[in-house]
Every structure is written in C-alpha cells, then in structure tokens.
C-alpha cells in the first residue's frame, strides 16, 4: 500500500554545533554530569528504596494486584457464577464451575472458581465486568509460589485473600445479592442495601 505523499513527514536532521563536531567538549560535559551524580549521595539516599525492608507508599484503591473473592455480610461467597468475568477475561485465566445455590436468594453459586495467577495480565476487566462486585483486585503484589500449580488460586484461596486484605481495602460496594431475601443464617445482617442505587 502506497503511503500518500502528504502523510510523509520529512524531519531535517539538526546541524551539529561546533562542540558536537569536535566531540571532545561533549565528552567533558558528559563526564561532568556523571561525576556530579556519582558524588551526590543525598539524592541516591532519597531515591533508592531498600525493597524488602522498605516499601513504597502505594495507592490501595486502584492498585491491580492479586484477585480476591468477596464475601457477603453473611460470610458466603458473593459470586453468583454468572461467568461475566471469565467471558471478559482477555487471558482466559478464570475457570468457573457453577452449581445450584443452596441459598434461596440466588440461583447459582460457584462450586469451583480457579484463577491462574500466572496467566492473568492484571488488567482488571473481571472487576469491571462483575455485576455483584464479587471479584476484586487487591493491592497485594508479593505473591510467590514454588510450582505452577501453587499459583492457580482456587475458591478457598481467593476467599482467604479477602480475609487478609479486607482491613486494608474494604469491599467497595455492598453486595447486590442481599436485596432483602435472607439466605444466610442470620437475618439481621442481610439488610436491604439502601446506599446502593440499583
């Protein structure tokens, strides 16, 4: 395909100045810069973070780290196995097996909910897609595993991440599913959500 003439931008190379032609003054200038940085201990003490001991201040609200599966106030998994997240996932790393819900307030619940954390690209699309804000990304980033299998997080592990991170990042929106129909054991906690406009 021919590029139209008007689309071609010709950039004229700037003329070299006298000192650039000579090259030697430029070397001296470069050495001055590097030496200045080399002896500037103050700056490097300010800039460098000694990682495992020191950690950077991070934005808890929108950091996209490891996933968690939220629990509703009854302590049940908030997910309704609608498959929206696994459909939205560009990396195809969410695998859900739906089963009939044991609770009356919803039809389905996830029997299995696996996220392959090694496949995930941490784009946050699952979080966007979720209609009941059950899946969320947490600010936790230092996850390690010794095997690939270890890095496939199942439902229990994801719920566990919620337990670990709920103090730092509380669940953003109260669950949609508690619209009055109490499915949990304690009816008092499953109040209709008045703050959330549906």
């Amino acid at each position: 395909m021919a590029i139209p003439d008007e689309d071609i931008i010709i950039i004229q190379e700037p003329e070299l100045t006298a000192s650039e032609r000579l090259f030697l003054p430029q070397i001296v200038g470069g050495l001055r810069t590097t030496l200045r940085h080399m002896f500037n201990t103050k700056r490097r003490n300010q800039v460098v973070v000694q990682y495992p001991e020191q950690k950077r201040q991070m934005r808890v609200e929108n950091y996209r780290g490891v996933h968690r599966l939220n629990k509703d106030p009854d302590g049940r998994v908030a997910c309704v196995a609608c498959f929206m997240c696994s459909t939205a996932c560009p990396a195809h790393c969410i695998h859900i097996e739906a089963g009939e819900s044991p609770w009356p307030d919803r039809e389905k619940y996830p029997v299995k909910f696996d996220i392959d954390e090694l496949r995930c690209i941490y784009c946050g699309m699952c979080e966007e897609a979720c209609p009941c804000d059950a899946i969320e990304l947490t600010p936790q980033y230092d996850v390690i595993g010794h095997t690939r299998e270890e890095m496939i997080f199942d439902k229990e592990k994801l719920l566990d991440v919620y337990e670990k991170t709920k103090d730092v990042k509380p669940r953003k929106n109260p669950p949609v599913t508690d619209y009055g129909l109490t499915g949990g054991q304690d009816k008092s906690v499953a109040k209709p959500n008045v703050e959330r406009k549906i």
């Binding site: 190379e13 070299l16 006298a18 650039e20 032609r21 000579l22 090259f23 030697l24 430029q26």
Partner: peptide, 15 residues
Amino acid sequence: ALVLAGRSKTPITGR
C-alpha cells in the same frame, strides 16, 4: 586537529 574537526563537513559523530 580541533580546527579540522570543527570545520569538517562529515564529523565523526555525524550522520
């Protein structure tokens, strides 16, 4: 050398 390099049409650092 400096004069020649400075007046050169094709300096070492050039295109």
